[in-house]
Computed example of a mutant assay.
Amino acid sequence: MTVPRLPRWIKPQLTRLAKEAPSGDGWLHEVKYDGYRMHARIDGRDIKLLTRTGLDWSHRYRRTIEALGELKVKSAYIDGELCALNADGVPVFSRLQAAMDENKTDQLVFFAFDLLFLNGRSTAQLPLTQRKEKLKRLFKREIGGLRYSEHVLGDGPQFRAHACKFGLEGAISKQADRPYAPGDRGIWLKSKCLNREEFIVVGWTDPEGNRSHIGALLLGYYTDDGRLHYAGRAGTGITDKELKRLAGVLTPLHAPKMPLVAPPPRDSRFGSPLKLSKVHWVRPELVVEVTYLTWTEDNLLRQVSYQGQREDKPANQVVRVIPHPPRTR
């Protein structure tokens, strides 16, 4: 009999955005964590933290690696999220980025929410509820920097409402009886408290007044046909320190031509006029996360606030539909 080998990397199961968490007893609901999606691969004393694209980031989080080494397992493959918490225990993405920038990652917390392999056996084909039962047993003993992600069954709208009340990002709802499905976007749903998404930086404007380094970031996204569309600007929520850092990251990405399928509108009812002559275009490689109020009818973001850079997500994965596509006759 062939013993299953611990996978080197498993493509993560993904989520689909929903306006509300689903109701019904067939759904399991967890907190949506505001951090970096990470897979913990444990093979004896060889422990790795892998990103959503399979990159080995173990060297960045030595304390988390040490904590995972305290789990009583021979081998395991755990899906989870690495977060930085505020004083109330709420994950805050900007704190995670700051911890990485300052190389102070000892206080990060890895929230484990799925188990795909355990002690020589694949568990990925088991129903989610059974996978989580096995996972929870690994976390009977409290280990600093590690937490098991609790869940509730049924009543998704109420769960999401409570998550929003406590200042969390939202809820993740999962079909409780389904196996793990790498890359799938239909079995797991995310419903957010704030509109919060990743976008690609396509350019930046010159600063004005007392502001230094960068005025605003110009944002974009891909559609399924591979075309890059303009989404709007992000200027608020960026500290002076972050403006300086972003300028250093964006300067080497300078592009001689606009990477968008169509130029941004020069005027908008919800912002100051955009002077294209003062825009510095860049190669579409840098991904950032922002919050926003809504999309305008002309497909521009309103009341955008910068949250941080997403080093864990490649630009080609920032794909969405056009919010208000033109009507066809």
Rank of each mutant, 00 (worst) to 15 (best):
G203Q: 10
M38H: 05
T223Q: 08
Y77M: 00
A171D: 11
L228N: 13
V279W: 10
K136I: 06
R269M: 07
Q307G: 00
G44C: 06
R310E: 00
A21S: 15
R227N: 08
E197D: 12
G26A: 10
T51V: 00
T64W: 03
P323Q: 02
D56C: 03
L118P: 11
R45P: 00
D225P: 09
Y148Q: 08
L293D: 15
Q317I: 03
K74Q: 15
L118E: 01
D114G: 08
Y230R: 13
V304Y: 03
H59I: 09
T105K: 06
E197Y: 02
N119R: 03
A18F: 13
K140I: 11
K174W: 02
W204V: 03
G220H: 05
N86P: 08
A231M: 05
L49G: 01
C83K: 07
W57F: 13
A87P: 00
L49P: 02
D79M: 02
E142F: 04
P157Q: 10
L276T: 13
L115K: 09
V152A: 12
G170Y: 11
Q125I: 00
G54R: 05
A98V: 11
S268K: 04
E297R: 15
P252F: 06
E242Y: 06
G186I: 01
E142M: 02
D177C: 00
H213R: 12
H213S: 13
W295A: 11
A262H: 09
G248N: 11
P207T: 05
I200H: 05
W204G: 02
Q158L: 14
T296N: 04
I42P: 00
L168F: 13
T294K: 12
P259D: 02
G35D: 07
R8D: 15
Y222K: 01
R320C: 01
V321E: 14
S191H: 02
R196Q: 12
A99V: 06
L50C: 02
R131F: 13
N119F: 04
H29E: 04
T64Y: 03
A176V: 15
P182T: 12
W188A: 10
N103R: 12
G69S: 05
V288W: 01
W204P: 03
D298A: 07
T239A: 06
V304E: 08
L6H: 08
L115D: 04
M258P: 12
R227F: 01
